[in-house]
């Protein structure tokens, strides 16, 4: 475990060295949030009106937090990186290393996400408050609960990105798979709570990982103990599932890997 914590710490320090890069990325995050704030401003005739159970205040905070998770863990580059390692055979170097590739990659990504979470969360709190006038009302215990499910959502999301990247063992390029996954995740959960979908679609979406990844967004606008426990249990199940999937693809893939020396 110690070696993975070193990998985490190393990535945190490296990311902090390039903290300036966050400014440019914050602009992209701001754009996404700005467009959606304008859109929802247009959709709500009256701030107290509720659309599918969400008031304008709740909707703006829901979208802000779900966009935040999407932004922190979107993994186009990670997928391409893993794909590249598999295609050029560099992944073979991991065989003789004293670590598990999946766990090592996860901790590296967690290190990166830890720093970006701090920057982007502060940024989102500022712009969210500027648009809505206040922060969501949460007690300290509720806030701790939200932070816990937020951390688990980030971990599950990163594991799913790793799994998609590892699919390059089977397909030559897994990037198109990531495009589809990210767009479904964006539309069916990030930009719209599942309550906006027809009942039949809600029943399907509740069993997808998107539901557990967007758990913190639902809790931040409407915290209740029952929903918190349900989200936590579902996240536990998905954490095991996503990790198991990564290990399965990696081990199966490494068995059939052919690398030319050079």
């Amino acid at each position: 475990m110690k070696k993975y914590l070193y990998a985490f710490k190393f990535e945190v320090m490296t990311t902090l060295q390039y903290a300036f890069n966050f400014i440019g990325k914050m602009f992209s995050l701001f754009l996404m949030i700005f467009v959606f704030m304008n859109l929802w401003n247009f959709m709500y005739d009256d701030p107290s009106q509720a659309i599918n159970g969400y008031t304008k205040f709740q909707m703006i905070w829901y979208v802000s937090i779900s966009e935040l998770i999407y932004f922190i863990t979107r993994g186009r580059q990670t997928c391409e990186e893993i794909s590249r390692h598999i295609k050029n055979g560099n992944i073979a170097y991991t065989i003789n290393k004293p670590y598990d590739y999946v766990v090592y990659t996860l901790f590296t990504l967690l290190g990166r996400s830890f720093v970006s979470s701090a920057f982007y969360t502060a940024f989102i709190m500022i712009i969210g408050s500027a648009f809505t006038g206040s922060l969501p009302a949460l007690t300290s215990i509720e806030l701790l609960g939200v932070i816990l499910v937020f951390a688990l959502a980030i971990t599950i999301s990163l594991l799913l990105v790793i799994a998609i990247g590892l699919f390059s063992f089977i397909f030559e390029d897994s990037s198109p798979m990531y495009w589809i996954y990210s767009k479904i995740w964006l539309i069916c959960g990030t930009l719209f709570p599942i309550e906006f979908f027809p009942v039949w679609a809600q029943n399907i979406l509740k069993f997808t990982p998107i539901y557990v990844i967007t758990g913190p967004s639902r809790l931040i606008v409407n915290f209740n103990a029952e929903a918190f426990v349900q989200t936590l249990i579902a996240q536990g199940i998905y954490l095991v599932f996503a990790f198991g999937l990564c290990e399965l693809i990696y081990r199966k893939g490494m068995k059939k890997l052919n690398v030319n020396g050079g």
């Binding site: 959709m43 397909f171 030559e172 198109p176 495009w179 589809i180 767009k183 539309i187 069916c188 906006f196």
Partner: peptide
């Protein structure tokens, strides 16, 4: 790979129609 890139991009773009149907 060329064809899969083309097809997946079409599918990728199509997902956004869901957003507009909902709105």
């Amino acid at each position: 790979t060329f064809l899969s890139n083309v097809i997946f991009m079409i599918l990728n773009n199509s997902t956004f129609l869901i957003q507009w149907f909902l709105l």
